[in-house]
Design a protein around this nucleic acid. Structure first.
Lengths: 141, 141
DNA sequence: TTGCGTGCAAAGGTTTTGCATGGCA
DNA sequence: TGCCATGCAAAACCTTTGCACGCAA
């Protein structure tokens, strides 16, 4: 599975999709909501193309994929400028408010080492998200 | 939301499904794998019944439902006598071979406590998956 | 007998694939 | 020009629903 950071051509559709994420870095889109959003901007893109573009953007690390529940739609959100920085820490996503937290902490680094040493599992931080409830939302539940 | 712990009739199918979970408390089943498992035991159950029975068992708290990823099958596992032990259960998924490992380990339980104490974040283990490369696939990459 | 349980078939939704066409470099 | 990208339609996939029949109590 080789790294391919600048693979592919530059097309109208791909630019439109990426633009949508960049303009709304704090929003997560489903394939459907992204399609609607593009339509409102006067950009018509096929559903198939959206799915394939999303896959590519996830591969290159520009966006991140969330799977909240089986049967529901997958969610995608912009990773941000500093991809590399995100490869060394964990992400926490609140199931209620949807906020994405970036946590850089020794405990988490230790966890990675432990999983590698004792379980033979090499964690890919950039692809991993911990789901739960954040401090702001906890009282409500 | 009323309590309904002993709702419903006692049927052959329901007994077979529950028996499967009780016999394999450390295994998680999908609807499909459960169906296969029952078939190997000579018990034929309809797919619809399995889904409905699983829903009922989740409602009563006898089993727990995991949502591993969108598009993938939902996983179910026996809750057992001690709910608390099951709440510290992480999932590891290999990005290459797709194998899903479930790991019950003190380190992971500590992580949850740490995130709650120091970051105010309450992790929902049933929705969380750590992605990476498993020991079998690592040499290949 | 009453009413829930069952299971086939069909529908529901999201995502993927086949294939011919279109567009980037 | 070559190859990738696109998009329609259809398929694949997991899950739910409609409906008639079966079975537990």
């Amino acid at each position: 599975m080789p790294e391919k950071e600048t693979s592919g051509y530059h097309t109208r559709q791909r630019a439109a999709v990426l633009s949508c994420f960049v303009k709304h870095p704090d929003t997560h889109f489903t394939a459907e909501s992204l399609l609607d959003h593009l339509k409102q901007d006067g950009v018509i893109v096929g559903k198939t193309t959206v799915y394939r573009t999303l896959d590519k953007l996830v591969e290159t690390g520009m966006i991140r994929k969330f799977t909240v529940g089986t049967g529901d739609s997958a969610c995608y959100q912009y990773t941000g400028e500093n991809h590399s920085a995100c490869s060394s820490h964990f992400h926490l996503k609140c199931l209620i408010c949807g906020t994405l937290f970036h946590v850089d902490c020794d405990h988490l680094a230790e966890l990675g080492e432990h999983l590698l040493a004792d379980h033979g599992f090499s964690v890919h931080y950039s692809q991993t998200i911990l789901y739960g409830i954040c401090s702001a939302c906890r009282p409500k539940s």
